[in-house]
Write a protein that binds this DNA or RNA. Structure first.
Lengths: 260, 260
DNA sequence: CTCTGGATGTCGCTA
DNA sequence: TAGCGACGTCCAGAG
């Protein structure tokens, strides 16, 4: 990232700075006092104030006021952006979108600073499920864990803490499931083991314990084997895709979908 | 607007710069290479890349990649934002929102530039021709929809929801108008249909239903025909011009202007 | 406070 | 390309 910054430029200086950024399709940020007109799907006017104006490298345009999540004016994509000086002594930036036809005009009275440069970003963005969502999915579809499993409770309170999922296997033996959406450590095994001990003490029955996670540290597996705890790997990416397709289709096709 | 800018700061320098901005609730923009974690309603991971990080004066947080209208990560409002250095040699910014509980963590590997300062913006933002305004225009000028239409109520409450506009046609039959200022989908037709059914059940009279929108999806038209619902296209650009000319001239010339 | 409907919604998938 | 539904939707207004 190589940024160029100008401070308190004259509008002439700012103009050539902005034009160069637009021409090179650089990331451009302008701080200054401006007023705005928008015409398109709706139309709006914004009287003068200090704001941050952004043009992204694909031509997306944002105008942000000092507060609030949302830009006060914007253009998700633009067919053209041009800047010029007006006789009134303002610097005008016009951003036009073609479909739908929309025009955004930003009139700068003065500019305090401007930044431009090329940003490199090849990062990968991944959206995961929250643990609660995974829990609910398994609650609705116990077959994700094991054939014949019946889950009767989620977030079951036990003396200390909560059991994520509780139920009975096909032979009627109680099953305690501890769920992690991140790689499971020895810690998670210990937690589950505590639940098992507590349950046994309280009900006099020895339950199975299954640790469910996307992956397991070596130490977790060692500990699990020592304590007779089972573990089951789940693929969160797959769950995510499933959830999306489920929302479109029907819930009851889920077990089948996942069982091969 | 008095902006402070630092270029290529060490992470230590950046830390104190950022902390001061946060403490003073200034507008803060940071350009640098970062990775991101988000946990809350969902959860996400973003691997390293060059981005613009913004904290607004009310604590709203935005993280923008080089392209696209939408921030890749954000926090509409925050209960707390803190910055600190990690042993790993990264600068971590943690933004926490309390309701719903959400945590955003941004890990800066290096920072290219940062800007902070207080922005003053008392400008007035006015949006023209919102749905409410269109509704009011039609209310005042039923001729926009149909010759001889009398509109008696707007925002008429019905068991579930509100009827945008209600009145009687030239033959005295009740008319229910549902208004959209965006292309109308099947959804809108169904909504209107529900009102019709409710009205009929309540008053024993079968009203006409007219869906008014700038355009209609094919599915909306199909559905409307199936359910015996009428639709009427309005031109919002034209309405906007009308409104402007109206403001200059007189209201009562409106019907004539629009009727050709 | 929660709930609901609108938005210059935006975005991505699909026919 | 247009339709259509999801979104960490956001946000304002009402009950």
């Amino acid at each position: 990232m190589k940024l160029e910054i100008i401070r308190k430029p004259s509008l002439e200086e700012a103009l050539s700075f902005i034009r160069e950024a637009l021409r090179k399709k650089e990331y451009l940020v302008v701080f200054g006092e401006c007023s705005v007109e928008y015409e398109g799907r709706g139309s709006s006017r914004l009287t003068s104030g200090e704001r941050m104006f952004v043009v992204k490298q694909d031509g997306a345009v944002l105008l942000h006021r000092p507060e609030g999540y949302s830009p006060v004016n914007w253009q998700p994509s633009t067919a053209s952006i041009e800047a010029r000086l007006l006789h009134s002594g303002e610097l005008l930036i016009v951003a036009i979108r073609s479909k739908p036809r929309e025009i955004l005009r930003v009139y700068f009275k003065n500019i305090e600073a401007a930044i431009k440069g090329k940003l490199m970003d090849t990062g990968e963005f991944v959206m995961y499920l929250s643990e609660a969502e995974i829990r609910d999915m398994i609650y609705e579809n116990p077959g994700l864990i094991e054939e014949g499993l019946r889950i009767t409770e989620k977030e079951k309170p036990i003396d200390i803490g909560y059991i994520d999922l509780f139920g009975y296997d096909s032979s009627g033996r109680p099953v305690i499931i501890e769920l992690k959406r991140v790689p499971a450590s020895r810690e998670a095994v210990m937690q589950l083991y505590n639940y098992i001990v507590q349950y046994k003490k309280k009900y006099g029955v020895d339950p199975r314990g299954i640790l469910v996670a996307p992956s397991f540290y070596r130490s977790a597996i060692d500990m699990a084997e020592k304590l007779g705890i089972e573990w089951k790997e789940i693929n969160i990416q797959k769950l995510w895709k499933m959830k999306k397709s489920m929302e479109k289709k029907e819930m009851n096709t889920l077990d089948r979908f996942f069982k091969h």
